[in-house]
Design a protein around this nucleic acid. Sequence first.
DNA 1: CGCGCGGCTTGATCGACGTCAAGGCGGCGC
DNA 2: GCGCCGCCTTGACGTCGATCAAGCCGCGCG
Lengths: 252, 252
Amino acid sequence: MGQDRSDGRIAAPNPIADDGDEYRFCSTCAFGAVCVGRGVDKIALHDLHCLVEHVGPYRAGEAIFRTGDAFTAIYAVRSGTVKTRLVDLEGRELVLGFHLPGELIGLNAIHPEAYPCDAVALDTVEVCRFSFPALATLATRIPEIQQELFRRLSKDIGDNALLAGDYSADERLAAFLVTLGQRYADRGFPVNALHLAMSRGDMANYLRLAAETVSRVLRRFQDHGLIRVDGREVAIVKPAELYALARPILQR
Amino acid sequence: MGQDRSDGRIAAPNPIADDGDEYRFCSTCAFGAVCVGRGVDKIALHDLHCLVEHVGPYRAGEAIFRTGDAFTAIYAVRSGTVKTRLVDLEGRELVLGFHLPGELIGLNAIHPEAYPCDAVALDTVEVCRFSFPALATLATRIPEIQQELFRRLSKDIGDNALLAGDYSADERLAAFLVTLGQRYADRGFPVNALHLAMSRGDMANYLRLAAETVSRVLRRFQDHGLIRVDGREVAIVKPAELYALARPILQR
DNA sequence: CGCGCGGCTTGATCGACGTCAAGGCGGCGC
DNA sequence: GCGCCGCCTTGACGTCGATCAAGCCGCGCG
């Protein structure tokens, strides 16, 4: 993974949900399973094609949407990594999540009818924009799409509950690395080599730890031979043991 | 609130979403806004009537559903209070939430297609059961119902994120009391007098604190004149100051 | 009545992690 | 090259809340 660039550095892997021909359209993307993998007919596929709008690229730091913006659409990440966060009155940041290609953002805006958080590109990001009114209308015609929306909304509820427990720093970090690895693997990347698109500070904030604690725990994991860390590149050396650490969080 | 009972004690207030006549059916209930408040016609109302199934009463401690049960239905609490929780491999409990009349439970089961948690009655509980396949089918016919489901799913995502931050014990407890008060008030109960259906231990578990800490913070709040505590009855004396404490959590 | 038990409260101690501080490393602009 | 600036790391110290322990209260039961 990674490829030479003109400046001689190795490009960080930048996962992308590639469009192929029409029948492989966004096959790795949020609705791929609905459009292609689950036997939706050509008409539904065509309808989604008409609905979707490619937006981007955004550069690192740019916002896809901001807190308070009127809710009009949900987005599927196409390439790159997106951070969702809210900023409180005192300017402190609270990271809600990181979103890889194929994942949806903006689902939490349906209820308040305004985005309740910022979505910020961590690297170069492209997204697919789905007008929500149009998507909802389509969902009334195509039950598979309605079902997929229900499923993804439901999944987000459960995922959020995971980190909410009072777990130790070791458990949190282990669970974070394991789930990130799984999500990359689901997208066809090597299971046990992952690139962190976010800074230590962002990780720490998301995990409700201090950046210093993240640093220390990663080092300890490495000293114990569980992982190998090189800046933002992490190799998982002993997946089973890391998973065992994360078990209190990941087991359901 | 509260009424005499034969044993001479005062009954704890037990909120109920009362059925009235057909047009006030579950007016305080989850779908009230859809069925009645938002101009859904009689046919839709009738359809929901046909769909819903009243279940209960459950006695304190009984389960409405259990972890791993096949997902077939979502439930709206009709009366009483429900606790959702998961129990990990070592038998430790993790409280996910408390659900008052009019609130839905089971939404987080759509994705895994099995309930990922237990739902346990804290007092005498009645629920409305909605077969999910039937509800989803109805939603394709009646966009208002689909929309309401989307909204409620979306709301649960946001709500879960609230407690996830690393807040102090004071902030957590203040936010808990304020939101509980709001939810009771939304159901027509006095704004600043609330009855806690759950034990200190359950509160503590939900807030990711120790029971002792909950006890201490409540006492300190009372010593500072913010609230008055009498067992599980809590009077909010200074709502504004309590809200100010909770602001870091509640402001968006 | 006495007893036991579960829930609640209060106090004393401990430890994990946050905070503060200093220094290293790499990238970028001048 | 040099210097600056973010990000990261490492160490020393402080603190909030968990844990341990004891006792209280209300209630059901023999």
